[in-house]
Amino acid sequence: MSAPRVFAQRLPRLRLALDSRQTSGSSLAQYARPRCSGQLTANTPRLAVSAHRSFGLAAQTNNSARWQSLQTSQQPRPFSTSSAMSHGHVDPPKPGEELYVTFITKEGDEHKISVSKGDNLLDIAQAHDLDMEGACGGSCACSTCHVIVTEQDYYDKMPEPDDDENDMLDLAFGLTETSRLGCQVHMTPELNGLKVKLPSMTRNLQSSDFN
């Protein structure tokens, strides 16, 4: 074997070569945690939830079967370990304790869902394959889980958004007076019957936008 050529120039002291194509890597499941998780808590109070969240490749309802078949395909899925996991962030409500929330998709379809107290709207939407991105995994750092509460009364019943949520809302497309971040809204008995609209995530830019 000739001398190895190294990618990064001028490396500090080298220690050991670990892995190669020929050796099968050890289980990747043990790495299924975001780097730094839990360590930056002072700065990132909302970091907790992301590790096993499904990011909803099955977001298009009609396509979910196909994606599920993809998910069980030969290739390893490094982060979401099972379909139970990927849909596992909300537990079905106990009989008699159901709360209801209705999502109105951008196509205008209504999805009324029974949920448990404490579930947040991002987890609920993703568990039901509704088209809500949640790019930052519910950490209040992306605004892609923007929802619009359709009735002012319900909006008023929610605890006020804190500064961090408002800061992210300031960046949301199509912000309204009753906009919230889905990942920050937790279901409570007072919110039973809540209806929220999912805004369109695409902005059709015109070439004139660029001039």
């Binding site: 730094c36 970091l47 992301s50 990011f55 790019a135 995994g137």
Partner: peptide, 8 residues
């Protein structure tokens, strides 16, 4: 780090 969660 939370911004990088989109990697998932």
């Amino acid at each position: 780090p939370e911004v990088k969660n989109c990697q998932e």
